[in-house]
Design a protein around this nucleic acid. Structure first.
Lengths: 131, 131
DNA sequence: GCTCTAATGATAACGCATTCTCAAGAACAA
DNA sequence: TTGTTCTTGAGAATGCGTTATCATTAGAGC
């Protein structure tokens, strides 16, 4: 994984422009705007390489296929739109997590997922968008 | 699904006694204490039937196979032990989730997952326990 | 106990996400 | 430009969780 190809540039562009975690099929659809004949295997290969390099980090949501986002963003959580299925980053962190940990247990990390409607899907005016 | 069988009683017993969400393989292992020849297909069939009846609810954690817990427990979240892999219920709910929702988005529900060591695995005295 | 029929157990089949295979194509060095 | 070698695209193959198949077993009413 040391050559600079159209396909790899397209995937990096998509991920840094979207600013949200994307699944391999999402990435493929978006990257095909740059490289129409791109295949899904290339997406998986590139995503794995970029993850190994530390450029990407995997994002898992319950019952969802794996997504990937650019690394180095600091602590944050995710919002999943139940209408269009897209996942977004959200800033901040809830408080009071410590009080939830049972006696004798040790908390190391946590994950928070918020579900609802994203800005596009919540907007009543322009009608349904997306998938 | 209208006969009362040994297998079904065993699975109900395991789930109501454990008080934590369990995956089909976990359920199989535990239920075999009552019915040693039980098969995995029976676990899946029974779990589906109990879910359809409203006795069980599925619990999904990121990157984990589906688990099931008894229904009717009220709002709560989950703790996953990174040593033994078991999942536990935790009471309470963090505050400040509303402030995390981006402008224009609408929050409907949320999920919180805490990771760390459970009481057994955090106890330094008796040494490691298996899953 | 006898019958009827649903449930079980073993295993094959499935769906899905992901990885592999390999001939063809594209980057980079010379 | 040419040659070498890595990367790509298409589809086959894999892994894993779950469901279907079907002969056998066992509830439940008589």
């Amino acid at each position: 994984m040391d050559r600079d190809t159209l396909q790899r540039r397209a995937i990096r562009r998509v991920l840094s422009q979207s600013g949200r975690p994307m699944s391999p099929p999402e990435l493929l659809a978006a990257a095909r705007e740059d490289v129409p004949r791109m295949g899904l295997a290339t997406v998986y290969r590139t995503v794995r390489a970029l993850t190994d390099e530390g450029w990407l980090v995997p994002v898992e949501m319950p019952g969802e296929p794996q997504r990937y986002e650019c690394a180095g963003k600091g602590h944050h959580h995710h919002f999943n739109c139940s209408r269009c299925g897209r996942t977004f980053e959200v800033e901040g962190c809830p408080s009071g997590l410590e009080t939830m940990v049972p006696e004798g247990f040790r908390m190391d990390t946590h994950e928070v997922f918020i579900y609802g409607l994203c800005g596009d899907c919540n907007d009543p005016l322009p009608g349904p968008r997306g998938r």
